[in-house]
């Protein structure tokens, strides 16, 4: 359940931005979460509601944008899509893959007022 800590991290960023930009309430939060980011999206939603309760983002909508896992295969040089860290290259079957995308955990944007 490190999703709880991640949501606390999100709330911290919201509070910092509110101070800097002078908004009072957050209505929607868009997160980008990669397929390989070790984040359970359902746990994230659950934790988010708990963590923002009573804060400036009380009742805010959480929109999660999933990003696909991408990896570069060292033996065959292809860029392939992967769903897990232990997936084999879909072109040549090798496990020598270098993950190039899909481990993101980012707050993309906010709807505020």
């Amino acid at each position: 359940m490190h999703e709880m800590s991640l949501c606390e991290g999100v709330l911290q960023v919201l509070q910092d931005s509110a101070r800097q930009q002078g908004f009072l309430r957050v209505k929607t939060v868009w997160l980008e979460i990669g397929a390989l980011a070790s984040v359970d999206v359902e746990a994230m939603r659950f934790s988010f509601d708990v963590v923002v309760n009573g804060s400036l983002a009380n009742g805010a909508r959480l929109e999660i944008i999933g990003l696909p896992g991408r990896a570069w295969c060292m033996p065959c040089g292809q860029t392939v899509s992967v769903e897990q860290r232990f997936d084999a290259c879909s072109e040549c079957g090798s496990y020598q893959l270098q993950v190039t995308g899909g481990d993101e955990m980012r707050i993309k944007e906010l709807e505020v007022e």
């Binding site: 931005s17 908004f23 955990m105 709807e111 505020v112």
Partner: peptide, 14 residues
């Protein structure tokens, strides 16, 4: 008015 704020910050940034 409601407005959009681009954040683009890593959740684990801190």
């Amino acid at each position: 008015q409601a407005r959009m704020v681009q954040i683009e910050q890593d959740i684990l940034g801190k």
